[in-house]
Amino acid sequence: MISMLTDNLVCWLILAAALGSYQLLLQEWLLLRSGNWQQCGQWQQFNTVLIASMPLCGLLGTIVGLLSVFAGLASGDSGAAELSSGIGDALFTTQLGLSCAIPAWLLQSLVNAKLARARVTHQHTQVA
């Protein structure tokens, strides 16, 4: 499994997007916890794009893996090991993309809800 990760450019793209996204989510969460909610939300749209790119990169990895399988079948020179390796790469990238994106979507929803509550609370204190 480690070789699938290190040898596959799509896996690195997914991990880079996940690292960036989780870093932005952590930054937003810490700002909210410290009471600096006014500084939050600057990167919200960019983070949404990062999160959405993870399963799409997983799909790209699926296509790349399946293309290698079909190329091996067409050439007739590939054995079962090469074919199963391509299928394994295809499935692994799909799994990696989804397993990085789903928690990020959930965390982003949590941060957005907390930010919305902070804004509503601030508006109520200004009106009163």
Rank of each mutant, 00 (worst) to 15 (best):
S85Q: 13
L98K: 11
F70T: 02
A90S: 09
A90W: 01
L66M: 12
C57D: 13
C57Q: 14
V64A: 10
A90C: 06
D89F: 13
S78G: 12
A74W: 03
G58K: 04
A80Y: 12
L66V: 12
V64R: 02
A101F: 04
D77V: 00
P55I: 06
A81V: 12
I87N: 04
A90T: 03
I63L: 07
A104M: 05
E82M: 14
L66E: 01
W105Y: 15
A104Y: 01
G72W: 09
L67F: 13
L59W: 11
A80D: 03
L106W: 13
S75I: 03
L96C: 03
S68V: 11
G72R: 15
A80N: 14
G79P: 14
I102M: 12
W105C: 15
S78I: 05
G65I: 14
I63T: 05
G79C: 06
A80H: 10
F92V: 04
A104I: 04
A74C: 02
I102K: 05
G72D: 01
L91A: 09
G58H: 09
E82T: 13
S75G: 15
G61E: 08
A81T: 07
S75K: 09
G58M: 02
F92S: 04
A90F: 04
S99A: 09
L91C: 07
G88N: 06
S84F: 13
A74S: 10
L98G: 03
V69M: 08
G86A: 05
E82C: 09
L91T: 13
A71Q: 15
F92A: 13
I87W: 00
P55C: 04
S78K: 14
S68N: 15
L73F: 11
L73T: 05
L91H: 05
G61S: 08
